[in-house]
Design a protein around this nucleic acid. Structure first.
Lengths: 333, 333
DNA sequence: CTGAAAGCGCTAACAG
DNA sequence: CTGTTAGCGCTTTCAG
């Protein structure tokens, strides 16, 4: 079933049918005739042929590290929300935390002709820079701030500082830091900076032995904390992510420390997990879903050539104080 | 940059370049000449034009209820894993739990020319049946069993029965049931059946007042349980999902009941949430990620016209006993 | 092994 | 307001 057949059935030209599906410029009678045939046949124009002609795929590529992470899922949820009504489809690329794959998929999107790309960034290598620079379609980066690119990201530094200051205010004499690689400028570097800023503000000099490196999993946080607790009994631990913090709390409990009393713990992300733990976790809420929506909106504007120039949107955070810092144990629901 | 220009640069015909990217049938010299030009220009053939000719998009549509649910994310993760190396791209449609949108997106995929569809099903209306029947590309349904369609699903009934029997074995005299709508044949109907089967096996007649209806959220589970606990003090509650169970445990705690002692609780899904709660939740692990992988593999076979006839794959479950049924409190990690 | 030629289904000038 | 015409970039007969 193609446009020619429809035209024949409706007794009009191909052009008329094409116009029916596009701008209009058609007499009422022809419109009605075509409408009738379309309804009867269930005809829909071939997207592929249209694309070949018009050079617009109406598809948006999204590159993301694994999907089964709460923050990623929330961002992607936000993206689909903003794009749903606009007639765009999402093309998902799952990089499984492999930076090489990020570059690979970005390149795939570059050549595959999507109308725009949203990139949930992690680290930024020269290879990333090179492929991003060669993209000829609009790109928006989420969760990282790279100079010269359109970005939507979070106030990681501020959130980390707020959490660390909260620990100090609640009685921790010298909070430790358990974070992730500084190659990740947002979750690694910026949150570490926030921690340092809080120490400085409190007149505490930073000490190398107070700062430990984890990866992004609960298990890793658990392991690091166990090792730590064999030697020392800290009274406060700031963790760069909620997952790490949950592992840490578990290790503390096993070591006989009462979280929220003997030791205060805080994370970042306000994940659903941290709200149901034995001791609910104090955390900074980041607006992941909003960042997805905003990124999609930004991309839409770029694709429609509105709003010139590069934009960076930083979203704030909200302190969610719970029992892990000694706060009151409000009902979780 | 198109095939004609490349042909000119390499001093060969368009056909030769096309063959270079497809079957071959090309002299070594020409091959080399083209390779050189391709490397130099970074040329990649237009996917759109190829599609228009060949009628294959190399895209797979996935229809799913909201992404930010752990089970969905795990299924989609599995799908991308299986499809990654095969040169297929995923087109995601997020229905936000709206059955009408499911039908709408299925129809979009029907007309948009994807090579195959994976449908994470919830309920099954006549509209669903009608659109599925009119699909002319292969479809695989995940998490639900619909007769006459290719499906990958879980042993919901068996898992529910096992959980209920475990509650009874651990000392619950008459476990209650808190479940979801039976319109959802898998999470609603089948799990309820499993509960009933376990009662029957234990010689307990089912009672209407022991079976309550919730929706899929923690909050709903919490609310239902609060109401319940104002009137009665059950000694066991089987919940059709982990989310519900977590809400229930919270309500029990607030009502002064010790979960795992005064009242035993079990769920289904083995979500990450249930492993970190104050009292870790006994649950049945369902192989969500595997179901995604298997569904993708099944779809690949269908698209390549291997293996005739409709197939249904049922995956098993694993009992994960934790403290909420009085089991030992093993370290969570 | 190779190239010329004929479209895939659609849209966009252009001339009525 | 309408139809004719000329491609978009590619693959695939078909005849060398």
């Amino acid at each position: 079933m193609n446009i020619t057949e429809i035209a024949k059935l409706a007794g009009v030209s191909k052009t008329a049918v094409s116009r029916y599906f596009n701008n209009g410029y058609l007499s009422a009678e022809k419109k009605a005739a075509i409408a009738e045939v379309v309804a009867r046949t269930g005809y829909a124009p071939s997207e592929q042929a249209r694309t070949l002609r018009v050079r617009r795929t109406r598809q948006i590529g999204v590159v993301m590290p694994r999907l089964s992470s709460e923050s990623t899922a929330r961002v992607v949820d936000g993206i689909t929300l903003s794009l749903a009504g606009e007639g765009y489809q999402l093309l998902l690329a799952n990089t499984a935390n492999d930076p090489d794959k990020e570059v690979e998929y970005l390149d795939t999107f570059r050549t595959s002709g999507v109308d725009g790309v949203i990139f949930l960034g992690s680290i930024f290598t020269p290879a990333h820079k090179s492929v991003l620079r060669s993209m000829h379609m609009p790109v928006v980066i989420v969760a990282q701030q790279y100079d010269g690119y359109n970005c939507v990201y979070h106030d990681d530094r501020g959130a980390a500082q707020a959490m660390t200051e909260l620990l100090i205010r609640r009685g921790s004499s010298r909070p430790l830091y358990i974070g992730v690689t500084a190659q990740d400028r947002a979750a690694g570097y910026a949150r570490h900076e926030g921690y340092l800023a809080a120490l400085k503000a409190a007149g505490l000099p930073p000490r190398a032995e107070d700062m430990l490196l984890s990866d992004f999993t609960m298990e890793s946080g658990y392991r690091i904390a166990r090792q730590l607790l064999e030697k020392r009994r800290p009274d406060g631990i700031f963790c760069a992510t909620d997952a790490i913090a949950i592992g840490v709390m578990q290790a503390c409990r096993e070591a006989g420390l009462a979280v929220g009393q003997d030791v205060l713990v805080a994370g970042i992300g306000d994940s659903a997990l941290g709200r149901v733990t034995a001791v609910p976790l104090t955390s900074a809420h980041l607006h992941y879903k909003t960042s997805g929506q905003e990124a999609a909106q930004m991309l839409l504007r770029l694709m429609h050539r509105q709003g010139a120039g590069v934009r960076c949107l930083q979203l704030g955070y909200e302190v969610m104080e719970r029992a892990s810092t000694g706060g009151e144990t409000a009902p979780a629901m």
